[in-house]
């Protein structure tokens, strides 16, 4: 089985870099980085990754706007998304899980934990 491609959209470039390093180190993934929403959307369309890690709090276009666009586009509609947030407020959590039926992870998160979450989502959506 080939490596799963993961797209991470987060304005924290350092965080993206470290997640890429870790996931590619401990998991069978290729990770592509986008540091803003617009760039992320474009990459999602072209790359069609297996899974998108999407930060909520971003300048210009926040995670929910990105998610909306992803879900609106037939090309990206099927890609599972795990929302990442440092905000930790219940409203975001509810919006993510209930509105778009997507997973939700709070930063800080350990690499192993992130990997198992990704694996879990991928296995579930593969069915």
């Amino acid at each position: 089985m080939s490596k799963k491609s993961i797209l991470i959209i987060d304005d924290e470039a350092d965080f993206c870099k470290l997640v890429k390093l870790n996931l590619e180190l401990i998991g069978d993934f290729t990770v592509t980085i986008a540091t803003d929403g617009k760039h992320g959307l474009a990459l999602a369309k072209t790359l069609k990754p297996h899974l998108i890690l999407l930060d909520i709090m971003m300048p210009h276009m926040d995670g929910f706007q990105v998610l909306e666009k992803l879900k609106a586009d037939e090309a990206t509609m099927q890609i599972p998304v795990i929302m990442l947030t440092a905000k930790g407020d219940d409203a975001s959590k509810v919006k993510a899980s209930e509105l778009y039926n997507e997973e939700y992870i709070t930063k800080p998160i350990e690499a192993l934990e992130l990997r198992s979450k990704i694996t879990e989502v991928l296995e579930r959506t593969a069915k």
């Binding site: 924290e12 350092d14 965080f15 470290l18 997640v19 390093l21 870790n22 180190l25 401990i26 709090m57 440092a86 905000k87 930790g88 709070t106 930063k107 800080p108 998160i109 350990e110 690499a111 192993l112």
Partner: peptide, 22 residues
Amino acid sequence: VAHEVRNPLGIIIQGVNYLETK
């Protein structure tokens, strides 16, 4: 504070994780 602090914390923990593995 949560947002501003958790992002660096996220980076730190990922960094630590990387170092642990590396």
